Simulated scan of single mutants.
Amino acid sequence: MSGRVQIDDSKNDDVPKDESSPVQHDEPEEKLRKRDYIDIFSHPNLMRLLNKQGDQIVLFADKVLKFTGSGKMKYRFLMITDFAIYIIDPETDSLKRRIALAAVEKICVSELTDNFLAVIIPTEYDLLIASARKNEIITAFVEAYEPEVVSSNRFEYNAASDLVKEIEFEEVEGGVKTRILRK
């Protein structure tokens, strides 16, 4: 269970205690916080949100760039628990989207050294994000649910319910060129 954060309400007095699901640490705190780059214990609203949803183990938490259907980029907190993916507005700690891990079909990544990954969700629109911690995100997904991970330098994703986009990666001198095209 390395790299997991178990939610312990005793760490934050602002979060109401839920006696029906007591959570206890079974590993040292520094080990539990290995992939918590936003310090979720310092965000009472995030703790309340996770407790309300019933999630108790956070496998990954960090700030990422999320791409909207219109092509805009927005900073969001990405949290992966043992049951769901959370997309949260970091300015307000408000939930923007919760995706059950069971709804995830696959994760698409390029074969190159870029920061992009797409979470493919057949029942709704997909999630395209960029993070310097792409490999840690994939590891957290695999630990939680073992989705198929597909590597390709070109793949499609549903940017919105009625909008399919294609993302293309090309190795160029000094890095990777990324193009997002409308289909």
Rank of each mutant, 00 (worst) to 15 (best):
A140M: 02
L127G: 06
I107V: 13
Y145P: 01
R76C: 07
E111D: 12
F77M: 12
Y75L: 15
T113G: 02
E136A: 11
E124M: 08
N135M: 15
D39G: 05
A100Y: 08
C108E: 07
Y145L: 06
F77Q: 12
T113Q: 12
E136L: 15
I138T: 12
R98T: 11
S131Q: 02
I80T: 05
Y86G: 06
R97F: 01
V119N: 08
S70C: 06
G69Y: 04
R35H: 13
P90W: 01
Y75P: 07
E124Q: 10
G69W: 08
F116A: 03
Q53H: 06
R97A: 12
L65K: 10
S110H: 02
E146H: 14
T123G: 00
I57G: 02
P44S: 05
A61F: 09
I121T: 09
Y75S: 09
T139H: 15
G71K: 14
L59F: 10
I57H: 00
A100W: 08
D93T: 01
I85K: 08
I137R: 05
L65Q: 04
F77I: 15
V119A: 05
E124Y: 01
I129P: 00
D114F: 09
Y37K: 13
M73L: 15
A130P: 00
E105F: 02
V109W: 00
L117N: 00
I121Y: 07
Y37H: 15
M79Y: 08
V142L: 09
I120V: 11
P147N: 08
V58Y: 00
D39N: 15
G54T: 05
A102E: 10
G69L: 07
L46C: 03
A103V: 01
I85H: 08
M47Y: 08
N45R: 15
A140G: 00
A144Y: 04
P147V: 04
K106L: 02
I138D: 01
S70L: 09
L128E: 03
A118I: 01
A140T: 01
D36G: 01
A118R: 04
S94R: 07
F77L: 09
V104A: 02
M79H: 03
I129M: 10
S110R: 02
A144D: 08
P90I: 12
A61N: 05
K66T: 07
K52V: 02
N115F: 13
T68V: 09
S42N: 14
L78Y: 11
A84Q: 06
E143Q: 15
V119R: 04
H43Q: 05
G71I: 04
L78C: 07
I57Y: 04
A132Y: 00
Y37Q: 07
K106F: 00
D93K: 06
K134S: 06
L65S: 06
F60D: 11
P44W: 01
C108V: 05
Y125W: 05
G54A: 11
K52M: 07
I85S: 13
P44N: 10
D93W: 00
G69A: 15
I107H: 02
A84I: 11
V64R: 05
E146L: 11
R35T: 01
R35Y: 12
V142R: 14
L127W: 11
S131Y: 01
V64A: 05
T113Y: 09
L128C: 06
F67M: 14
K74G: 10
L59K: 13
R48T: 13
T139C: 08
